[in-house]
């Protein structure tokens, strides 16, 4: 199976391709200097976002996203889940658990 880094990169790309997704955020939280956090929330430079781990041997992928306010959260999340799941499967990680969280709605 592919490395965690390769899986995360693939998941990032898959999530970003979904219409309505405006940005990816580091899964698990955002912390930093005031200006940097504010820039980041306004769509500043992104680093690797998705997080891969393997509880009980199964791949779990966490993706934090912001969505456009004109989209619908649940629809966007479902598409992200589907895209990410197939991207992971293509790299040999079938039946992965995909955890998608909307952390911001771009207004």
């Amino acid at each position: 199976m592919s490395s965690e880094r390769a899986l995360a990169t693939a998941a990032d790309a898959a999530a970003k391709s979904v219409p309505g997704v405006t940005a990816l955020y580091p899964a698990g939280g955002l912390r930093g200097r005031f200006g940097a956090v504010k820039d980041r929330l306004l769509g500043g430079p992104e680093g690797p976002a998705s997080q891969i781990d393997r509880p009980r041997g199964r791949v779990r992928c966490r993706v934090d996203i912001s969505i456009s306010s004109t989209a619908t959260a649940v629809t966007v999340c479902q598409s992200v889940r589907d895209e990410v799941a197939s991207a992971l499967e293509a790299l040999g990680a079938a039946e992965a658990q995909v955890v998608v969280t909307v952390v911001r709605v771009s207004l």
Partner: peptide, 29 residues
């Protein structure tokens, strides 16, 4: 110079979670 941490709050599920899917939105959002 002020270091801040985003306040996500609780995570609210958007639909019932399954072994392969867990969708949610933060209280902060």
């Amino acid at each position: 110079g002020i270091v801040v941490e985003a306040r996500p709050g609780r995570r609210i599920p958007l639909e019932e979670a399954t072994p392969i899917s867990d969708l949610g939105i933060t209280e902060g959002a």
